[in-house]
Computed example of a mutant assay.
Amino acid sequence: MLFSSFILLSTFGLTACNSDDNKTQVSKPPVLPDTGFVIVGHRGASALRPEHTLASYQKAIDDGADFIEPDLVPTKDGYLIARHESEISGTTNVSSLTQFADRKKTKKIDGLDYTGWFTEDFTLNELNQNVKARERIPQYRPTNTTYNDQSSIPTLEQIIELADAHYKKTGKIVGLYIETKHPTFFQKQNLAMEDRLLSALAKYKYTREIAPVYLQSFETTNLKYFHEQLARKKSLKHAKIIQLLDSPNAIPGDLQDQATPANYASLATPQGLKDVASYADGIGPSKTYIFSNNEFKQTNFVKDAHAAGLKVHPYTLRPENGFLPDYLKCNQIATERCDSGALKEFENFYKAGVDGVFTDDPALARKALNQFQK
């Protein structure tokens, strides 16, 4: 009832009588979180909770993220679930479950061999049978292991419902910044994610009409498909497309089969960025496209991307020494947080003119932004 009233007030306005000056007041519609600089909770607040869990996404929301970022992979029966990769031995307890011992396999994905347990070999019901999330990088985040085996792998629908529930409770819109993982590989497995994703997003009013939804990928072909489908169907009111950039010499999975494949370095040139702008609204580069890991020297990337009409959202800013550039580390203990160095790194990227950042610690990013904007 509260949600319905909120929408009615936002749509038609509310006339109220002020006892002091008797002026008419009109309620305003909610402000979309991407009208200014955006803070993206990378896999949630993954510096503080195991990534891609509802607890991690909720922590990111509570800590001031404008967007939460699920990476999506499919199950055997076509459900979209949140994992960094479909190989889940490093992010769950699946390897310890004897009933699934026979599911261990080796697969080649985008030219690389992976051995372990893969989501596409499990139904959603099977994954819900005692498969629990674990910290992916305990060597850097040992304290996160205290949350191991507490959370199931969330579905896309559960993530949408989490953000929608927060909106209904607080009136604050939190966007979804969704990555499709290895789309070409899954298309070849008859588990294409694109139409499933668009259908799921269109099913909910929150993602269909209220919240911004960004669709991102390290590949190019599926982003062009998203661009065409969104332009034709207009099913999502606030949808945008983001091209991700991996290391310069790497090649997008969809282009590896082509006779003359283009690497990410070619996409990052001024002409490459103009080509990207024909189907995307923004670009998500590794942070080293903008600053070297070893010295504070800015490249022309932000200027070139803006000249092409693209927003720039680099990844990933993290608070531990092990992830900071050498010139910002507090010490050489990789597992220790270095908030002073992390705050300085945020400031450097804000000064560089980026339009948003991916971060594992949205609260720290928000603190740095508040200080920068004073």
Rank of each mutant, 00 (worst) to 15 (best):
K169W: 07
P142T: 10
K169V: 03
S95R: 11
T146I: 13
A133H: 00
N148E: 09
R103E: 11
E135Q: 14
N128V: 05
L156D: 00
K169Q: 15
G111P: 12
E120S: 04
D149A: 06
N130M: 08
N125W: 05
D102P: 05
T155L: 09
Y147W: 11
P154Q: 11
N148W: 01
K105V: 05
Q150A: 12
F118H: 02
I153N: 08
G116V: 00
T146K: 14
I109W: 04
L156M: 07
N128G: 11
T146Y: 09
D113S: 14
T106C: 06
F122M: 07
A133S: 14
T98M: 08
E135K: 08
Q99T: 02
D113T: 07
W117I: 03
D164N: 14
N125C: 03
T123E: 08
P138I: 04
K104C: 08
N93W: 04
L112Q: 15
K168M: 09
R136P: 08
I137M: 10
T143F: 13
L112S: 12
N93D: 10
Q158R: 09
T123G: 06
N125P: 00
S152H: 11
N144I: 03
D110Q: 08
Q99H: 10
D110T: 04
E135H: 01
F118C: 00
V131T: 03
D102Q: 13
A163P: 09
Y114M: 06
L124N: 05
L162V: 04
S152T: 11
A133E: 00
R103A: 11
D149L: 12
T146S: 13
F122T: 00
A133Q: 03
I153V: 15
H166A: 07
I109N: 01
T145F: 02
D113R: 06
K104W: 00
T143E: 15
Q139E: 15
I160D: 07
S152P: 05
S152V: 10
I137E: 12
T155N: 09
Q99R: 15
S152E: 11
T123N: 10
E135Y: 01
A165W: 06
A165V: 03
K107S: 03
V131G: 07
S151Q: 15
T145Y: 00
E135D: 09
D164Q: 15
D164L: 09
K168T: 12
T106A: 13
S96A: 14
A165I: 06
D121I: 02
L124G: 09
P138T: 07
T123D: 06
L127P: 04
Q150M: 13
P142Q: 05
Y114P: 08
T115S: 15
